[in-house]
Write a protein that binds this DNA or RNA. Structure first.
Length: 862
RNA sequence: GCGAGAAUGGCGGAACUGGUAGACGCGCUGGACUUAGGAUCCAGUGGGGCAACCCGUGGGGGUUCGAGUCCCCCUUCUCGCACCA
């Protein structure tokens, strides 16, 4: 029970009892911890609400003010929903495996675990200073064997389902990091996190058959409440396209190849075929005459980066080489030349296409480059000028003539199927998920290899497979000089009684794929999660995090969840019912180059006294620097530190400003001065209750006071805050809270009931001061356990309203009328307004418009 | 190139289904109280004009009694995606 009853030991300075945020915030944080105020309730009869923040990676650099924005938002939801009678599951933990800790450990010569523990302590400390209402008893880290035992357990499940396999695949190898990266981690030929260059290699890797779930992952999006743009990104990432796959025979050989197309209806317009340079047939069908040309082209292609090959516009000039071979177009028996070209990707579809330049921009560009014929088969465009991709009747197409695209597709697919040449199929852009990394600081696989090199699952009883101690965490090399992961150094560990252990580890995504389930029963060592708890708490009702995870984490987690659902281990097909992305916080950055790629300067190094100017002056040198609002980041020298702001203004003021600065989904531009503003607001709240001269409660607070204006402000605030808990528009609800304080400050008397109701709706935003004032008003239990107040619509209505009176759409005056005025009364009052009457006298009144409660518009013909 | 979103005072941002544009806050100006104020309180604050009034939501058209909001065209910015046949 509550152990701290002493009144706030707020600092008395010169007899003034000011709001001492440091003492009060520390006091209540201790109180919440000591009383386990936010421990998840045991009762399972109340409605539940699972609010989750995206799992943070505890980096070494700690938090800047951009990080807690989402956590503050979810904290308001947690606290308010709790007061509304929900059982709230609010938890925080650490996605603590990962390369940065490993690199930091190498650098400092200590164990990654130690780095991780230190970073977690920093993060936890920073978050706890913000007064976030987490159930800290459920905290866990993915790098804890108690947790990763179950990550390995889930891997076993996926393996047993045939969803995990090893394959020799072309991978993104990062020489600097000595590891492979997932496609999603590579952009522009570089590792997205560090910018280190990435090259292509073929290696044996673990893969997940996420492609088997492509259709399910698409369908599941229909049932969730997610931002439209994120759903769209996932759909596009999965990239479903319907079409046909069929066979082309290579003339004069026994060979054939399959093509995939979404436009089988244009088959009569086929004038050549193209194989990807990597296509296995290339070697076999190239004629001697063309061998040199083909070899030359393959060399050229190899030299190109993936990006060079895949980031061209459709109508960009093409490259390629003729193989000398011809393919037989199945629909008309024509022999068409077979080319190779890097605009055809080996990794998509069948790695081969038939080309119909008349109706495909890429084929058109290629045909123009190499002087290949163009044959129109869909009327409606001018194929002598450009490819025509619109609809129209087919021509030059035998049995398809006259049909539109849709009908022609159906017809040709039926024909292909009847003749045993091919069939209608669906292709996805989604590729199988590369799941292994050559790193130390990740989950070991529960896999051993036999002497023949075949993988076997370790029995469940052998989990967790823990990370062995190493002298060094750097990658190593094998007897043939091939690169080996750091775990290969642990020879005793590798040679287990069950076989040779897998030395790759899982990627960082693994832990975050199911952490939301572990939070349900993190103390259980006998199960990954408790089935009853899963039934009660899942799905996550509100998931808040940045949109940078729109595809990767959210797609991977959904995939695992779907598999677990199929196995009957979870009861909902989707893990995250509602998703919300908080915006990225920006702040002014100063750089000596206009493109912001030069040297950055700290705000205190420059003089930017004219905020409307896009340039500033470096104080020391007088040089001009450019000013731009940029994402807050250490490297741009534009971060604000939450610890400093907590010290100066308090966590409550910081929390308020995080959300007051703008809509949650937009980031907003950070200004430390804004925190001073929300601090002033809290000072005024304080003075409503506390007489700063005596430290006693103010005389202003009385048992009852009849004040319609104050009631309206109060109930307006209650209503707005209550609604914002669902629509997450906290910036406007904070302004309603401010309005109440403005009215209350001016009022002679404020009823204690009104003040208490206000404190309750304020408490999710500024919990420390709300607790303190609540206690000063005589309450012994935490305000977090108080009931949420209801608003009274009757209190929101006003006796009289001000109507704007327009003449021809321009406001010419206002009139006070009773709130329940009828149309005739409103119009009469409007016409009587002196200034309006004068305008009316200038012309003929043609029309009167009355918008109840708003305005009157009188249309006058002058 | 394609797609999505955005553009409102000196600044961050309000404005429900078209209905008094600029709520709330920052900053600024003036005043009060003060030994002092970077504390607090009061008043003011889109631009122009003594005023009536005029002009104002990136630019240009349109619909409407009435447009920040709806439609068309354009500009700029942000964020995704990038030859997927």
């Amino acid at each position: 029970m509550s152990r701290i009853h002493a009144p706030a030991d707020a600092r008395r300075t010169g007899g003034v009892m000011r709001y001492d945020h440091e003492a009060i915030e520390a006091k209540w944080q201790q109180y919440w911890a000591a009383n386990e105020t936010f421990k998840t309730p045991e009762d399972r009869t109340a409605p539940k609400y699972y609010v989750l923040d995206m799992f943070p990676y505890p980096s070494g650099s700690g938090l800047h003010v951009g990080h807690p924005k989402g956590y503050v938002a979810t904290d308001i939801v947690r606290r308010a929903k709790r007061m509304m009678g929900f059982n709230v599951l609010g938890v925080m933990g650490w996605d603590s495996f990962g390369l940065p800790s490993e690199r930091q450990a190498v650098k400092e010569g200590i164990h990654p675990e130690e780095v991780t523990r230190r970073n977690i302590d920093t993060f936890r400390g920073q978050l706890q200073k913000l007064g976030l209402a987490y159930d800290w008893s459920r905290e866990f880290a993915t790098s804890d064997p108690r947790h990763y035992k179950w990550t390995q357990w889930i891997f076993r499940k996926l393996y047993e389902q045939g969803l995990a396999y090893q394959a020799d695949v072309g991978v993104n190898w990062c020489p600097a990091l000595q590891t492979v990266l997932a496609n999603e981690e590579v952009n522009d030929g570089k590792y997205v996190e560090t910018g280190d260059p990435v090259e292509q290699r073929t290696m044996k890797q673990w893969m997940f058959r996420i492609t088997e779930y492509a259709e399910r992952l698409l369908a599941g999006l229909d049932g969730v409440d997610w931002p439209e743009s994120t759903e769209k990104k996932q759909r596009e990432w999965i990239g479903r396209s319907e079409g046909a796959q069929f066979r082309f025979d290579v003339k004069g050989t026994g060979e054939s190849f399959e093509v995939f197309t979404t436009r089988p209806d244009t088959l009569f317009g086929c004038t050549y075929a193209v194989l990807a340079p990597e296509h296995p047939l290339v070697e076999r069908i190239t004629t001697d005459a063309q061998r040199a040309a083909v070899a030359g082209y393959l060399e050229e292609t190899r030299a190109k980066t993936d990006r060079d090959r895949t980031t061209q516009a459709a109508d960009a000039p093409k490259t390629g080489a003729f193989t000398g071979a011809f393919a037989i177009c199945p629909v008309n028996g024509e022999a068409v030349p077979i080319w190779i070209a890097d605009y055809v990707l080996a990794s998509y579809g069948t790695g081969a296409v038939f080309a119909c330049p008349a109706h495909d921009e890429r084929d058109y560009a290629f045909a123009k480059t190499f002087g290949l014929p163009v044959r129109e088969v869909v009327a409606g465009g001018d194929v002598s000028a450009a490819a025509y991709t619109g609809d129209g009747p087919h021509v030059n197409s035998d049995f398809l003539d006259g049909l539109d695209i849709a009908a022609a597709k159906t017809r040709i697919i039926a024909w292909l199927e009847e003749n045993g040449i091919g069939k209608g199929t669906i292709q996805y852009k989604l590729r199988d998920w590369l799941f292994s990394r050559q790193r130390y600081w990740g989950e070991p696989f529960p896999i051993v290899f036999d002497d023949a090199g075949n993988p076997h699952l370790l029995p469940e009883s052998q989990l967790p497979v823990t990370l062995p101690e190493l002298d060094e965490y750097k990658p190593t090399t094998g007897p043939d000089g091939e690169p080996l992961p750091p775990l290969a150094r642990a020879t005793d560990w590798v040679n287990s009684p069950y076989g040779r252990r897998e030395t790759n580890t899982m990627p960082q995504w693994a832990g975050s794929c199911w952490y939301y389930l572990r939070f349900l029963s993190p103390d259980r060592d006998d199960v990954a999660w408790d089935a009853e708890e899963e039934k009660y708490w899942m799905p996550v009702d509100l998931y808040v995090g940045g949109n940078e995870h729109a595809v990767l984490h959210l797609l991977y987690a959904r995939f695992w969840h779907e598999v677990l659902f199929d196995l009957g281990l979870v009861t909902t097909p989707e893990p995250f019912q509602r998703l919300f992305h908080q915006g990225m916080i920006h702040a002014l950055a100063y750089n000596d180059s206009q493109d912001m790629r030069g040297k950055f300067y700290y705000p205190e190094e420059v003089d930017h006294s004219d905020p409307s100017s896009s340039t500033a002056t470096v104080k020391a040198t007088g040089d001009t620097v450019f000013v731009k609002n940029m994402k807050m980041s250490k490297s741009r020298y534009n971060v604000s530190n939450p610890d400093d702001l907590c010290r100066e203004y308090g966590a409550d003021a910081l929390r308020l400003y995080e959300l007051f600065m703008g809509p949650l989904e937009e980031g907003g531009q950070w200004e430390d001065a804004g925190v001073a503003g929300t601090k002033r607001f809290l000072d005024r709240v304080w003075r409503l209750v506390v007489d700063e001269d005596t430290g006693e409660n103010t005389a202003k607070l009385v048992p009852s006071a009849d004040d319609r204006d104050l009631d309206r402000a109060l109930h307006g605030a209650i209503k707005k805050v209550t609604e914002s808990v669902d629509d997450l528009r906290f910036n406007t609800s904070i302004s309603e809270l401010m309005k109440f304080v403005n009215v209350a400050t001016k009022a002679e008397k404020v009823s204690i009931d009104a003040m208490e109701a206000f404190l309750r709706v304020l408490s999710p935003f500024a919990p420390h001061i709300a607790e303190e004032l609540w206690q000063r008003l005589g309450h012994t239990a935490s305000i977090a356990t108080a009931a949420w107040p209801a608003w009274d619509e009757a209190k929101l209505v006003v006796d009289s309203i001000t109507l704007a009176v327009q003449v021809n759409g321009k406001v010419r005056g206002t009139v006070e009328v009773p709130a329940d005025v009828d149309q005739a009364g409103a119009l009469a009052a409007a016409r009587a307004e002196p200034n309006v009457a004068e305008w009316l006298s200038k012309g003929e009144l043609k029309r009167e418009i009355y918008v109840p409660g708003r305005l009157v518009n009188l249309v006058v013909k002058m």
